[in-house]
Simulated assay, not measured.
Amino acid sequence: MEHICLVCNYQDLYEAPYDHRGVPSDEICPCCGFQYGFDDDGFCNNEDSYRKWRDDWVENGCIWFSEGRKSPVNWNPAAQLSK
């Protein structure tokens, strides 16, 4: 089962961003660096936090976040965002 980042559309998170009760996973997306349960804390609407994070990530060049988990071969952030 794919677990997809709600910010950058990365398709291979280890866990779903939220469980069936809406509890965040606390996972950090290796692609964009968004941490569920932390970076969305305090937002009335999580969509606002996703949009802001995505806009900042794109503006800064869509740089792969994780040093320990390498980007997929032929990783293309523009194609990933368009899925």
Rank of each mutant, 00 (worst) to 15 (best):
F34L: 01
I63A: 15
V73I: 15
V7F: 01
V7K: 01
Y36H: 05
E47A: 15
E2H: 13
R21T: 13
C5Y: 06
D48E: 14
F34H: 01
N46S: 15
E59H: 06
C44H: 13
P72V: 06
Q80C: 13
E15S: 14
Y18V: 07
R51D: 13
S49A: 15
G68N: 10
E2Y: 11
S82F: 08
F43Y: 15
Y50D: 00
I4A: 11
Y10S: 03
L13R: 03
D48P: 01
K70P: 03
H3Q: 01
F38E: 12
R69V: 14
G42K: 08
C29G: 04
N9I: 09
W64A: 09
E59D: 14
W53C: 11
P24H: 07
Y36S: 02
S49R: 01
F34G: 08
N76K: 06
S25R: 02
D19P: 01
C62S: 15
G61C: 08
D19T: 05
A79S: 13
C5R: 02
I63P: 02
E2N: 14
C29P: 04
Y10A: 04
P24V: 04
C29W: 03
F38D: 10
K83W: 10
A78N: 12
A79Y: 05
A16G: 10
C8G: 12
I28K: 06
R51K: 10
L6N: 08
W57H: 06
D19S: 10
C29A: 10
S82K: 10
D55T: 12
G33Y: 00
C8E: 04
G33C: 05
N60T: 08
N76L: 04
V23E: 11
N45I: 15
Y10Q: 00
S66G: 11
F38G: 10
N9E: 07
E27Q: 11
D55F: 02
P30E: 08
Q35T: 15
M1L: 09
D56G: 11
W64Q: 00
W57S: 01
L81H: 03
Q35L: 03
L13F: 02
P72W: 01
K52Q: 12
C31V: 04
K83Y: 08
L81I: 02
W75L: 01
P24W: 03
Y36Q: 02
D26P: 05
E2C: 13
R69I: 15
N9A: 11
H3T: 00
G68P: 07
H3D: 08
Q80G: 03
R69P: 00
Y18K: 07
G37S: 10
F43T: 06
I4F: 03
C29R: 05
W53N: 02
E67L: 13
N46L: 12
L13A: 13
Q11G: 13
N60P: 04
G61M: 09
I4K: 04
